[in-house]
């Protein structure tokens, strides 16, 4: 008889592993990827490919040659970072911007902290914010490249709804006037990807499909996205009720910008979100609040990236002080 395997219990393992989870995230992102390819054509494909390949390549080379340890590229986490970053860039961004962003995301935000699981900030967002402050013109150029099969180019306006509103208010218009001037800014069009924006945020519906997939596969729990969306809705609603001419309405705020992309795919990043449910609620509420405040009072039209990064920094504290409830109560 052959030698038996001996180990402590448990002797079986669930089906989950890191690679499977990352693959599920990629699958969940695929509707958004498809929509961006439909509207932005080759340039979207180019961005996604450059992002995925650069991130994976950077991780492999850093682990192999600098850290000299076994490479963990096969867990697909670097690919997810690359795709997320690509979906966060304006579709017209040149490939080298994507390349630099990917290097920053993996090299600076992930590997310097020790790789997967050690980083404090979401790598894709660090990459995006780095690009946003380094190449502000490219990063806010929402001109629309040629779509695949001549996808409805005309319907896509050249600016994001948020920036239109921001500029409009700066030039002294009220929200109603801005919306009246831009008939494209209806909820229906936002749901079905007819507004300008980064590759991944143009279609709310595609993102919601991904969200549902992640929930079914139990990759994420609904807590964080639900609390973020709820907070954005409530906080922007309060402002809107106080002064509808200066502040946009809550539904507008939910459907525009990276709120959906950020709350479903970025804020739920395992590594940079709290462990306990109570911590997750505080974290998500913080993101929602900061997003609305930055949108309404900050100089950037969009606040999601900054809000998530700021709340990422609080995660170690939240993990320390927001403990899960223990069975049998505290001592």
């Amino acid at each position: 008889m052959r030698n038996l395997i001996i180990s402590p219990s448990p002797h079986i393992h669930g089906r989950e592993n890191t690679r499977r989870i990352m693959a599920d995230v990629l699958i969940a992102l695929s509707p958004a990827m498809l929509v961006s390819v439909w509207f932005f054509g080759l340039s979207a494909i180019k961005l996604i490919l450059v992002g995925a390949v650069t991130c994976a390549g950077a991780e492999y080379l850093i682990q192999k040659h600098i850290l000299r340890r076994e490479s963990s590229v096969s867990d697909l986490s670097a690919v997810v970072t690359g795709v997320l970053l690509a979906l966060n860039l304006p579709p017209s961004a040149p490939w080298w911007v994507m390349f630099i962003g990917a290097l920053i995301a993996i090299g600076v935000a992930k590997m310097t902290f020790g790789g997967l699981g050690q980083n404090i900030f979401n790598p894709a967002l660090v990459g995006r914010v780095f690009l946003l402050v380094s190449f502000p013109v490219i990063m806010t150029d929402w001109s629309v490249p040629q779509g695949l099969f001549g996808g409805s180019v005309d319907a896509l306006s050249g600016a994001t709804p948020l920036s239109m509103v921001k500029e409009g208010i700066a030039s002294g218009l009220t929200v109603e006037q801005i919306l009246a001037q831009n008939p494209d800014l209806s909820y229906g069009q936002m749901l079905f990807a007819r507004v300008g924006g980064s590759a991944g945020e143009v279609s709310a519906l595609a993102l919601i499909a991904g969200f549902i997939y992640l929930l079914i596969r139990r990759v994420i729990k609904p807590t964080i996205p639900a609390v973020i969306l709820g907070t954005v809705f409530v906080v922007s609603g309060i402002f809107w009720l106080s002064d509808a001419s200066r502040f946009t309405d809550p539904v507008f705020n939910l459907l525009t910008g990276g709120v959906l992309l950020g709350s479903v795919f970025m804020a739920t990043d395992y590594v940079t979100s709290p462990m306990s449910t109570s911590g997750q609620i505080v974290y998500a509420a913080g993101i929602g609040l900061l997003t609305v405040l930055i949108r309404f009072f900050g100089s950037y039209p969009e606040g999601m990236s900054f809000a998530i990064l700021i709340m990422n920094a609080t995660v170690p504290l939240l993990n320390k002080y927001m403990r899960p409830k223990r069975f049998g109560g505290n001592k």
Partner: peptide
């Protein structure tokens, strides 16, 4: 010669607490 395959975590303490050894 080995008489079993230890598949637990790499810790002598854990292996020793588990059984007589591999």
């Amino acid at each position: 010669p080995r008489t079993s395959i230890y598949d637990g975590c790499a810790s002598c303490k854990v292996e020793n607490a588990l059984y007589c050894g591999d």
